[in-house]
């Protein structure tokens, strides 16, 4: 095994590195592109790669629902709205340059530095998953279903009410005449 700075370079780590690099570049693209459609596309790529990363974490049901919910529904909605606005007035989605840009970047870097300096080092020791074959199927539909409808049934119902309110609210906003 090759060691770089005390970390074993495994094939899995290389694969993760590739995925994570593309995901990070896509995340930068979301902010950097002036064109909103391209930002949305970058976000789609990012979410899709996150779904792949969820698979690598054995969370298969969540990985697939990430694709269904985010890539398949939410981002399509975003694109839909961007295109609708573009159709109405192509000029309105124009970015301008001002002092917020450097200020925002500096603030975010400080934030990232704080977390990376304080929290990550203490977690270096817990760097390997506990290999327990009994727990490896924790992301399967069966396991999630059992937990969701027993221990977490109250939050589940609360979320369903939230979604209902969301539906009613969006209809209320969208309809001109009720």
């Amino acid at each position: 095994m090759i060691n770089v700075a005390g970390i074993e370079i495994t094939p899995e780590l290389v694969a993760f590195g590739g995925l994570a690099t593309v995901a990070a570049l896509a995340a930068i693209g979301v902010v950097a592109f002036n064109n909103a459609v391209r930002s949305a596309l970058c976000l789609v790529v990012n979410f899709f790669l996150l779904a792949v990363l969820y698979f690598t974490l054995n969370a298969e049901l969540l990985g697939i629902s990430q694709v269904i919910v985010y890539t398949g529904a939410i981002m399509v909605l975003f694109l839909f709205v961007i295109m609708l606005l573009n159709l109405g007035a192509p000029q309105i989605l124009h970015e301008k340059w001002d002092f917020k840009r450097p200020a925002g970047i500096v603030l975010a870097l400080v934030f990232a530095g704080l977390i990376a300096g304080q929290i990550l080092p203490s977690l270096m020791s817990a760097s390997r998953p506990v290999s327990n074959p009994a727990l490896d199927a924790y992301g399967s539909p069966q396991a999630i279903g059992r937990t969701l409808f027993s221990t977490y049934v109250f939050p589940f119902e609360a979320v369903s009410i939230l979604l209902l309110i969301g539906i009613v609210g969006s209809i209320l906003l969208a309809k001109r005449r009720i």
Partner: peptide, 15 residues
């Protein structure tokens, strides 16, 4: 993925 340390995932999340 057994070969990937936890910190790698967390760093991506932080970024």
């Amino acid at each position: 993925m057994i070969g990937v340390p936890l910190v790698a995932y967390l760093s991506l999340g932080l970024f």
